[in-house]
Design a protein around this nucleic acid. Structure first.
Length: 260
DNA sequence: ATGCCTATAGGGTATAGA
């Protein structure tokens, strides 16, 4: 089962690029972030016509997550538990039944957190604490589970082309990285780093200052696999070439292949 | 370099992003 994450930066602007990539990459499940659309505005029929089941959790203007799946999406839930006053659309879960294993799939768009200090950074850290609690609950179920999406976290210096540029940024501050490690340390495997070592592997390049042409990227889109899910992993790759396509998102897809 | 671009909402420019 091929499961991909892709921050598309607006479904209306990305419908062609997303459609082309779906045709090329043929994921069984695509976990999308920043659809920047309300549920009624999402072009559901377009993707249903391509053979995908569609579940969205959108909001007006920004944020918004969605799941596209060739297999049925079961037990869908929306919103990260732990704060009923949080109205930002950043979390969706569903179960997909493979031929051998059912996979619980969690899609997230973790808050950016800039500027630091300030209420946006406080929200990021509080959101990550809620994520840790949800990750603990999922871990205790001892089922194949993955948490994927745009984490807005640069885990290590080698995950940025110019780490000095990010020294005081919410994506790279020690408190942000520690919060990410605390979740990993519950027993999750960061899929890409379990398979590929070394610098130069990025998932985001800014639109500005020729970041793509200069390969000034960062790796912020991740997969965390529960032990039962990590045992099924056969591959994990970044589709970096998508960044050089026509009218691209500033993020590119990352995917895992599971023996599920 | 304090968003240098891009997208959305909306009908001006403001907000958000990383």
């Amino acid at each position: 089962m091929k499961i991909a994450t892709f921050n598309i930066n607006g479904i209306k602007a990305r419908i062609n690029a997303l459609t082309d990539w779906l045709g090329d990459a043929a994921p069984d499940v695509a976990v999308l972030q920043e659809i920047k659309s309300v549920d009624e505005g999402f072009p559901r029929e377009h993707f249903e016509d391509m053979g995908y089941n569609v579940e969205t959790h959108g909001q007006k203007g920004f944020n918004g997550v969605a799941l596209l799946s060739r297999l049925p999406l079961e037990d869908v839930t929306r919103g990260l538990p732990g704060d009923d006053s949080d109205e930002q659309a950043r979390w969706i879960e569903a179960t997909v039944m493979g031929s051998q294993h059912a996979i619980r799939i969690c899609g997230l768009y973790l808050p950016n957190g800039n500027p630091v200090p300030g209420p946006k950074y406080d929200y990021k850290l509080a959101w990550m604490e809620r994520l840790k609690i949800r990750a603990e609950t999922l871990m205790a179920e001892e089922l194949p589970t993955l948490i994927t999406g745009d984490f807005n976290i640069i885990p290590q210096s080698e995950d940025a082309e110019t780490p000095a540029q990010w020294k005081d940024d919410a994506l790279f501050l020690p408190a942000s990285r520690a919060a990410f490690r605390r979740i990993e340390n519950l027993g999750y495997t960061e899929a890409f780093r379990a398979r590929v070592q070394g610098p130069g592997h990025y998932t985001f390049w800014d639109y500005q200052a020729g970041a793509w042409q200069r390969n000034n990227g960062i790796r912020i889109d991740h997969f965390l696999l529960s032990p039962e899910c990590a045992d099924l992993m056969q591959d994990c790759q970044i589709d970096a070439a998508v960044r050089g396509g026509e009218k691209p998102s500033d993020h590119v897809p990352v995917w895992v292949d599971l023996a599920a």
